[in-house]
């Protein structure tokens, strides 16, 4: 966090090139998070880039007492949610036709060799968006409930409920 703040201060002082260490540090986690949310590599690349561009343009508003990682995830999650909403409006009929029982094979699944892991990845893809987001932020990014609630802009209680339900669904599906 201290290192992040050092680079952020330099970017704020006009050294634009010093944004690159921040990109290097968080690009993979943000990309993975967005990819799991949108389940399309091209869209994920675009959304990740746009999230970083937004962060870069708004960096003067960033307060150092806040975690840059959480701030970046907030931007990325809001951007992803907006994208998914627009996509849903456009392709509502297409989405209804998705066969829930047939697991979606994402680009990540293709890389995973372990069958149980592959199954888990597929099951995560089948979760509702808010559950998926909560699971990824909690278990992959290891964020606290309070941080997830700030990122998603929902009360702590809601995050807890979503997390519990997501875990229950995953546990049951994995036990099958």
């Amino acid at each position: 966090m201290k290192e992040d703040n050092y680079w952020i201060r330099r970017v704020k002082n006009g050294k634009r090139n010093d944004f690159s260490p921040l990109v290097k540090r968080y690009k993979d986690s943000i990309f993975y998070f967005i990819l799991k949310m949108v389940q399309n590599e091209e869209d994920a690349v675009d959304l990740t880039q746009e999230s970083f561009i937004k962060a870069f343009n708004k960096i003067s508003k960033f307060k150092e007492e806040y975690s840059f990682k959480n701030w970046l995830f907030t931007i990325a999650s809001h951007h992803t949610i907006d994208f998914l909403r627009k996509k849903k409006q456009l392709k509502e009929t297409d989405l209804l036709e998705i066969d829930i029982d047939r697991p979606y094979v994402s680009p990540i699944d293709a890389v995973i060799k372990d069958e149980r892991m592959k199954k888990l990845s597929c099951e995560i893809n089948l979760l509702p968006e808010n559950y998926r987001m909560v699971i990824l932020l909690k278990h992959k990014e290891e964020l606290k409930i309070e941080e997830i609630s700030e990122i998603m802009g929902v009360p702590h209680g809601t995050v807890k409920v979503w997390l519990h339900r997501a875990r229950e669904q995953l546990r049951k599906r994995m036990a099958k």
């Binding site: 993979d28 870069f56 890389v111």
Partner: peptide
């Protein structure tokens, strides 16, 4: 969940991003 393998961003991701940012 903890050991779920991630997927790194594509190789040209940074180059394209910096191009868009003018860095």
């Amino acid at each position: 969940l903890k050991s779920l393998p991630g997927k790194p961003a594509p190789r040209d991701f940074e180059r394209n991003l910096y191009k868009r940012l003018g860095i």
